[in-house]
Design a protein around this nucleic acid. Sequence first.
DNA 1: ATCACGACCTGGAGGC
DNA 2: TGCCTCCAGGTCGTGA
Length: 276
Amino acid sequence: MPELPEVETVRLTLRPAVGATIGGVWTSGQPLRLNRPIPTAALRRALVGRRITELRRFGKYLLVDTDGPRSLLVHLGMTGRLRIHRAADERALHTHVVLRFEDGRELRYSDPRRFGQVDLARRGAERDHPSLAVLGLDPLTERLDGAYLHDRARGKSASLKAFLMDQGIVAGVGNIYASEALWRAKLRPTARLPRLTRERADALARGIRDALRHALAKGGTSLRDFVDADGVAGENADYLLVYGREGAPCRRCRTLIRRSVIQGRATFFCPRCQVL
DNA sequence: ATCACGACCTGGAGGC
DNA sequence: TGCCTCCAGGTCGTGA
């Protein structure tokens, strides 16, 4: 579900949690991604009594820093939500982690499909965490340009779309924004990396940055599940340029948008103006 | 090493 | 109404 703009939207709307002191930790006992148990005891040891100091994002991962040495690491998977509630509010089905604050609020993580991840990372050494160590460049906080993409494409033969969705190359781009970025760059999702010239890589870098920034400005894309930390849906679904528009006219050339499947994921493109 | 596929899991939508 | 199939913002293990 959530790609970089959605995770960043959650981070921004979660800011009222900064300053809160964690009084208790509850977990559902159900495992998340890869059948991995939530490390309840370790979460309690690391977080109870600590004050939340900062919220950071690396690609699609969110870090909740505390005044202790450990940060809470969260990945939302496809259906994960992180929301602030009053403690008295009824708990949603599929709630898996609750941080009780001493001021009567709670930070709750829910995730029906349990594709997400909840763990601890060492503050200051968070990039040593195996999930963060493998991430490529974050287009919002680091300089993403054509030189970088062109260099990382060397020796590879995958499709442009698979390349974009590889978190080790660009951290934060997922299925929606891969299609959006390629449409903006006028590049065919099925095109192979050897044809990514430096000039095309420049266009692609620009397409990625623009797709993500515009989506973030609309509070992210809510196709079905996504809401921010206050439960508010994003508005970017109304502004998508190509994703989900199969059979509708291309916004540039009016040719009908086509849908195909690349690596098992729905992919949308204009067969006329995405020439490469 | 790289690449593409299937599996993981639940729920909503649409067809019959 | 109910039951079926298909689909979904992600990632990882597998086998070619």
